[in-house]
């Protein structure tokens, strides 16, 4: 059982991690993350790289949808903007990868701000529909702006290299994507310790009251869109480098639904939720694949049912969590934690 943890200064009480137990766990987690590539095989490294990219994008979407309450179905399209920017720069300028990555994120931010403009006029459901419209228009551009995107053929991207090491494999790429992911998550967590994060939540909970209390709604809504698409841009750029090839099919509307599902399943409006949701949703298809493999001797054309099964399960997860656990895995996690805090006493 854990009891109170006294503080001597307000800075200490405002810290992100406030108890010693939390710090112990944090260091343990860090140690695991560092040791991981030395023990895991390529398949599991590949998965963790993919999870990291998805965590970045899901965190961005959670800032916009979970914290600010602006439902977006455009996250995948904004990732596409980041990915295409990176791919174009990689093929045409030869600039170093981190410049490309930032440029991709910047371009995604710009597009996200434009796509967020309807949020100044409409909210809630209308906005969600506007983001569907925006992603269709972007998809159209990916397909038809041949001189830049090479249309449906797609673009290949050279793997990035750092200090002479080419990051062309999950085991090397891990050292790029993992630190970026950790930093992006920490930045998001920091945001919600400040006036900006509070303004976001206030807009979600009661936008008009927030405005009367001094929150400039258009400014903060657009800022939230900008941040979400910046995250999407970084994730998209990493995606392009990680897979080495992109085409318009890489960023379908279904992928935006995937990210929406991730934050619903993980928990909207919590940083932990984005992480748990992205892990869960990335692993689900793998688990399904595993299940189908086991069943393959007993059913016909097992490989063909994998994709529809995945689609149906994504949908079922969205529906199931919204019906039965609307606060997501993060809430389950919190309950488990509280149980151990108070152990052996029960509440």
């Amino acid at each position: 059982m854990r009891i109170g943890s006294p503080k001597e200064s307000y800075i200490a009480d405002e810290a992100l991690f406030r108890t010693r137990t939390q710090w112990v766990w944090l260091w343990l987690l860090l140690a695991v993350l560092i040791a991981y590539p030395f023990v895991a095989n390529l398949y599991w490294l590949f998965l963790v790289c993919l999870i990291s990219i998805n965590i970045i994008s899901a965190t961005g979407l959670n800032i916009l949808t979970g914290y600010t309450g602006q439902v977006s179905l455009g996250q995948a399209a904004f990732m596409g903007v980041g990915a295409y920017t990176v791919a174009w720069l990689d093929n045409n300028t030869g600039s170093p990868f981190f410049i490309n990555l930032l440029a991709g994120a910047g371009m995604a931010t710009l597009v996200g701000l434009i796509a967020g403009l309807p949020s100044l006029r409409v909210k809630g459901l209308y906005l969600a529909i506007a983001t569907i419209g925006a992603s269709f228009i972007l998809q159209f551009i990916f397909i038809n702006w041949e001189s830049v995107t090479r249309g449906t053929r797609g673009i290949n991207i050279e793997p990035p290299s750092v200090l002479g090491v080419t990051l062309d494999n999950p085991d090397t790429f891990y050292w790029l994507v993992m630190p970026i992911m950790v930093v992006m998550v920490l930045l998001a967590a920091n945001l919600f310790r400040t006036r900006i994060g509070r303004a976001f939540i206030a807009i979600r909970d009661r936008d008009i009251s927030a405005s009367v209390l001094g929150i400039n709604l258009p400014f903060y809504k657009l800022m939230s869109f900008g941040i979400a698409s910046f995250y999407a841009g970084i994730a998209g750029g990493l995606y392009a480098y990680f897979f080495g090839a992109i085409n318009p099919e890489s960023f379908p509307l279904l992928m935006s639904i995937f990210f929406l599902a991730a934050i619903i399943v993980g928990g909207m409006g919590t940083i932990l939720g984005s992480i748990l949701g992205a892990i869960f949703m990335t692993l689900t298809p793998e688990i399904l694949r595993y299940g189908v493999d086991i069943l393959s001797p007993y059913i016909d054309n097992a490989p063909q049912i994998l994709s529809p099964l995945r689609t149906a399960v994504f949908g079922a997860l969205i529906v199931g969590f919204l019906l039965f656990e609307p606060h997501g895995l993060a809430e389950i996690w919190r309950r488990v934690r509280r149980f151990f805090h108070l152990w052996p006493f029960r509440t």
Partner: peptide, 30 residues
């Protein structure tokens, strides 16, 4: 009209929003 997703402390801090000046970059890095 309290913000139901926030703690008491955050609600009250939000009231001080107009008196604060923290910008986005500074907020992200804290």
């Amino acid at each position: 009209a309290l913000f139901r997703g926030m703690t008491v402390l955050d609600n009250v801090k939000l009231g001080a929003h107009v008196r604060m000046r923290t910008g986005l970059l500074s907020a992200l890095w804290y």
